[in-house]
Design a protein around this nucleic acid. Structure first.
Lengths: 337, 337
DNA sequence: AGAGACGATGTGACCGTGCACATACAAGGA
DNA sequence: TCCTTGTATGTGCACGGTCACATCGTCTCT
């Protein structure tokens, strides 16, 4: 039937045009919803498209428009629950808007690594980037780099210029601490995240604010690394000093480790010490004792990021979101003094 | 200086050629490591590339070669720890090989949804797809669809044709069950994953195999949904019947919920009942009691998937991996009868 | 010395779109 | 009636690479 030279080639816009009896440009207009097309012509073209099972070639389109309809995610997280959940939100929102998503996991947060990652994404011609790089350092590197591409950072350092995007970490931490204060605790320790992390700073600030406002003593925060293992270690260390009755931990993983450490050291929670975490990971409601914590809507955060980024790409006014509210989930691990 | 008509255009292969005093084709050869290039010429070209900060346009390349150097991930998971970890492995391995990765989260596992997702990825012209769709149904839909694209499925249903990829779930479950048997338990219940999930089936099979071999009674497995909340519910239900002394749970989340349910119902673990989970999520070592579980290397699974997929794409012989070993992590939740 | 093989490079076409511009025809105002 | 304006469509080129083929010089073998 077909000539031997004819390989299985995908139908192109011209094949459609030939079948529909119009010019290729008319087909292009139909594809791009150009207003000046007679309904009759449009129908013919759509028929031909259906018959041939034609699909536009995105590479060709990207070549000529120099837009890829792709977003990049630059992730500098080790697979934490929060960021991972946000990524799902990002992907969903992006697909809904007709964008596909290319994810890049940063192995290190050195300026070189970040630079190379950005270059990689630029090569892929993404139209914009969502940065999930919760480290202060990363944030600064990005700022200094003068990225020539629209980008949105999920965790915005305080006092930054752009739109506020992250959930209100400070308020959440403050609420958690006030909860402990309300229970009658006056000696409250904070186990913080790593020095470099934006969220670690925010949560610590919320803790400090609440204590200062209540005129209570603050303790030098203990710097953790977000892992449950560190929490365990901290629990054992803290067992030696008994100058506190409550601990506010910067994330649930560490909090769960802490519970373990306390248990091994013979400290009872909440009888001897109250504990509050942050993030509300799915198992928080089931560990022993069940963990009081601060809930936040990670996927929604991702969705908002996409909306802002797309507005930026399209040159529209960016939607103004208020800070995402956090919710305190009170459970067994925190009890009255 | 420059003419007004000249927009900020990226340098092309021809700009490089002009500067280096060669033809555009020579530049192309340098970029593709063509053997027949004089070192001297190559150096000139590389210099010009550096001077202009030239970067090849991937869309143009994709257009002419009809290869995108992109892999797609088709994920049908709700954000479980395991698959998510595997995705990280996939992305890393893909980048190493010069591929970028486009992730697509499936919201439903209906044939239509899967079909539309596949079409979407095809539109994006990915060169191959890694499927993280642990449901039997998805697997069958894929098989029936005759996907015209190289793809690898992370969780392979038993008796499938291709390469075995998933960790040896059956063996892991068997080991876990044998561990309980070795502790003197003879009445062991299994809380399984959802009916449709491949891994749920494998783990159940391992459980049944071990019991049959030891000539012990089996119980009709309880079907869960992987969530900690379900585990809690199951714990409360199981508290009514006391015809067992051990439970093997198909994943850690449910196991942790189960511990909670038992605790609330006054059943002590491990004194009254032993519990073993599956996956070894990070908090498993810290819940109370610490959870015995089966460890598996999720990122490695992802990496292997990429290697197999790339071999398939390149038409090479697929590397043969043995099944990925699982490791039993014995902790407090399982004790002698 | 002539011929063929091979290495190094250049030339032009082509991939599948969108854009700028040209064209044809109909409608409306002076 | 003629000119203007607007709608519906067509024509050719550009985007930035790769591929097939042509060209030219050098080396080697007989």
């Amino acid at each position: 039937m077909s000539t031997a030279s004819e390989r299985a080639r995908m139908p192109s816009i011209r094949d459609v045009a030939r079948l529909a009896g119009v010019s290729h440009q008319t087909v292009s207009r139909v594809l791009n919803d150009h207003p000046s097309i007679r309904p009759e012509t449009k129908a013919k073209v759509l028929d031909a498209i259906a018959v041939l099972d034609y699909r536009p070639n995105l590479a060709a389109r990207a070549l000529v428009t120099s837009k890829s309809n792709m977003l990049g995610i630059l992730a500098a997280t080790v697979g934490e629950f929060g960021p991972t959940s946000s990524i799902v939100g990002i992907e969903d929102a992006a697909r809904e808007e007709g964008y596909s998503v290319s994810t890049l996991n940063l192995s290190a947060t050195t300026p070189e690594a970040i630079g190379s990652a950005l270059r990689q994404l630029a090569r892929e011609q993404v139209d914009g980037i969502v940065v999930l790089a919760p480290q202060v350092r990363t944030f600064h590197v990005l700022k200094g780099m003068a990225v020539e591409m629209p980008f949105v950072s999920l965790q915005t350092a305080s006092g930054s210029d752009g739109v506020t995007l992250s959930a209100d970490q400070v308020a959440g931490a403050r609420t958690a601490t006030e909860h402990l204060i309300g229970l009658g605790h006056s000696d409250i320790i904070h186990i913080a995240g790593p020095q470099d992390w934006i969220e670690a700073e925010s949560r610590m600030r919320g803790y400090l604010d609440a204590l200062r406002e209540a005129d209570l003593p603050t303790f030098p925060p203990i710097r953790g690394d977000w892992t449950a293992d560190f929490g365990y270690f901290a629990g054992q260390e803290l067992a030696r000093r008994r100058d506190f009755t409550a601990v506010f931990v910067a994330n649930d993983q560490m909090a769960i480790g802490l519970l373990h450490g306390f248990r091994d050291a013979g400290i009872r929670v909440p009888e001897d010490v109250s504990v509050v975490g942050f993030d509300d990971i799915p198992v928080a409601a089931h560990v022993a004792p069940t963990l009081s914590t601060v809930h936040q809507d990670f996927p929604e955060l991702g969705r908002r990021a996409v909306r802002i980024l797309l507005a930026q790409i399209r040159g529209e006014q960016a939607p103004q979101f208020g800070p995402l509210q956090t919710t305190l989930r009170t459970r067994e691990s925190s009890a009255p003094r």
